[in-house]
Design a protein around this nucleic acid. Sequence first.
DNA 1: TCTATATGTAACTATTTTTGTTACGAATTA
DNA 2: TAATTCGTAACAAAAATAGTTACATATAGA
Lengths: 161, 161
Amino acid sequence: MNASSRFAVAVHILLVLHINRMIRGFDATTSDFIAESVNTNAVVIRRILGMLRKAGLVVSQTGVGGGSSLAKSAEQISLENIRVAVEDGPLFHPHYSEPSEECPIGHCIQDEIGGAIDEAEAAVSKVFGGKSLAVLAEKMIQTDEFQTCMKEQMAEMELQS
Amino acid sequence: MNASSRFAVAVHILLVLHINRMIRGFDATTSDFIAESVNTNAVVIRRILGMLRKAGLVVSQTGVGGGSSLAKSAEQISLENIRVAVEDGPLFHPHYSEPSEECPIGHCIQDEIGGAIDEAEAAVSKVFGGKSLAVLAEKMIQTDEFQTCMKEQMAEMELQS
DNA sequence: TCTATATGTAACTATTTTTGTTACGAATTA
DNA sequence: TAATTCGTAACAAAAATAGTTACATATAGA
């Protein structure tokens, strides 16, 4: 593996916020709730929520009844917005620890390879930029798997209340 | 930063092999020579050369006068060939440590996000697949920086012999 | 105002990945 | 046989990521 899992987790987090508001009618979702869905520690979730907050994708509130929710509509949030918010730096290293100054190749290579890398990154941005959280959620909601699982959960919640 | 620097180093290595054969007339280049250009340990270079060998991009020979050289023409080697040879696994994690089975989102998210990631990877492959080592080298050779630096080096080599 | 609930963040540990280094056997040339 | 050169194992060092505990701060509501 190459990159961190923050991107995938961030998408998961935002999907939970979106779906909780759309389907379950929650105004805000707590980091504990999200942590259970992702199956990790709530602090890990809060860390990523912090990055998403800085990027203006979510808002959070402390205290009773607090939690996080989307700062914009799901149509206005692209996967590229999410990626940029949580993955820092380029997809590929354009260089490494100081190539030799004496060698003509070491000297010039970084510009050449850098250009190719920039193109690749632009291509990734275009793909992710064209996919909104809303569309992703829509596709997910329509799967049988999701419908079945959601029904079970809602039924459980009814019983408990 | 996100990924390893192996890709950039591998491109550097192959450029050295190509240019040493084209310009300097070397049949094979030693890992020590490459290591000086990249400015790292020769074992690091041999490790990456091993991956490039497995991918059929270079051939190596032990013993006096040995070293490595390109297994194909530089026109037949694309940046994508190089990337695949040295970077394992996907550019992005499609998932992370087991999301909750009970949560409908954790349950379904991986397929949805996986599709987007596959598209992004395909875009990267296309960009890198369209760039050959030969074209990269050609561009580099034509820079003033390279020409100046190369002349100096060749002059030094004349003096020494 | 007091209490329960949540966040925000620092600090620390553990794990994994990558890189650097030493060492040495095997292959090759002269 | 001697001098090179590779291939690879073994280990150390460094960096990035993820997980955990702890606690100050903010908020809602009794």
